[in-house]
Simulated scan of single mutants.
Amino acid sequence: MTALLDVRGLSKSFGGVEAVRDVSFALAAGELLALIGPNGAGKSTCFGMLGGQVRPDAGRVRLAGADITGLKPRRIWARGVGRTFQTAETFASMTVAENVETALHGRTAARSAETRRLLGLVGLAAAAGRPAGTLSYGDVKRLELALALSNTPRLLLMDEPTAGMAAAERTALMQLVAGLARERQVGVLFTEHDMDVVFAHADRILVLDRGLLIAEGPPEAIRADPQVRAVYLGEGLTFSEAG
């Protein structure tokens, strides 16, 4: 079976510094795959290459068998890739509904009905008329998820989806994402610094260190991997035994 996302030999250098080196992995439809690593590991650069913000020096990215390597973000979005960012990208002065309607611009379906559907999906139907700038940070993240879902994506790229959220909000958001992934067979690739979130929700985990993929596997294998533990202990981080 063809992987939803297939990445082969992805590499990128900046001024002689190898940010990402020969990274290869695959992601299946309905799977939650976490990309983790210490600061400077190359996670953001890797995400940028997948989303079209950064052009790779080498390697190939295929979505459902089609080559999307080096395409502009708008063209990648049109192929069915949604994205959220570490710092939520919403229009604070617009209402919640207006934010979604803006993302739906150009869609043939009735925008008001689709807006209601998306806001209901992420639990923000009651906040439709509120300015986005008045939302709690957790609800802003939910709104950003609704925007990412506006093109009915096959693949979701989520950069630090729970950053800045309280523990209960983190759990609720990731449970929502996991449910959407299973129900709609959407592949999800996410980066995350909170290891409790990673080990509780990821089906598989990729570990980057200095641009290299050093480990890949299910959470229990990654938790026990001595090289991964050494990398994170060097950052002053430990893995919770819970989750």
Results as ranks from 00 to 15, higher is better:
Met1Gly: 13
Leu5Lys: 00
Asp6Val: 09
Gly15Phe: 01
Gly15Pro: 00
Asp22Asn: 12
Ala29Pro: 03
Glu31His: 07
Leu33Pro: 10
Ala34Asp: 00
Ser44Cys: 05
Met49Tyr: 02
Gln53Tyr: 15
Gly59Arg: 08
Arg62Asn: 12
Asp67Glu: 08
Thr69Leu: 04
Gly70Leu: 01
Lys72Cys: 12
Pro73Lys: 02
Pro73Cys: 03
Arg75Asn: 03
Ala78Asn: 07
Gly80Val: 04
Thr84Tyr: 07
Gln86Glu: 00
Thr87Tyr: 14
Ala92Leu: 14
Ser93Pro: 11
Ser93Thr: 15
Met94Gly: 05
Met94Tyr: 05
Thr95Gly: 15
Ala97Ser: 09
Glu98Tyr: 01
Val100Ser: 02
Leu104His: 10
Gly106Met: 10
Arg107Lys: 12
Thr108Cys: 07
Thr108Gly: 14
Ser112Asn: 11
Ser112Trp: 13
Glu114Gly: 03
Glu114Tyr: 06
Leu118Arg: 11
Val122Cys: 06
Val122Arg: 12
Ala127Trp: 01
Ala128Glu: 07
Gly129Lys: 04
Gly133Trp: 12
Gly133Asn: 12
Val140Gly: 03
Leu145Asn: 06
Ala146Lys: 01
Leu147Val: 14
Ala148His: 01
Leu149Gly: 02
Leu149Arg: 14
Asn151Ser: 11
Thr152Arg: 14
Thr152Lys: 13
Pro153Gly: 07
Arg154Ser: 13
Arg154Trp: 04
Leu155Trp: 04
Leu156Ser: 08
Leu156Tyr: 04
Asp159Gly: 12
Glu160Trp: 09
Met165Gly: 02
Ala167Ser: 02
Arg170Met: 15
Arg170Trp: 10
Ala172Arg: 12
Leu173Gln: 05
Val177Phe: 13
Gly179His: 01
Glu183His: 07
Arg184His: 13
Arg184Val: 06
Arg184Ile: 06
Val186Tyr: 00
Phe190His: 06
Val198Arg: 02
His201Asn: 14
Ala202Gln: 02
Ala202Tyr: 01
Arg204Lys: 10
Ile205Ala: 06
Leu208Ala: 05
Asp209Ser: 10
Arg210Thr: 14
Leu212Asp: 14
Ala215Cys: 09
Gly217Ser: 04
Gly217Pro: 01
Glu220Leu: 12
Ala221Gly: 04
Ile222Glu: 01
Ile222Arg: 05
Arg223Cys: 05
Asp225Pro: 09
Asp225Ile: 11
Asp225Gln: 08
Val228Ala: 08
Val231Ile: 13
Tyr232Gln: 09
Leu237Glu: 09
Leu237Arg: 08
Phe239Ser: 08
Glu241Met: 09
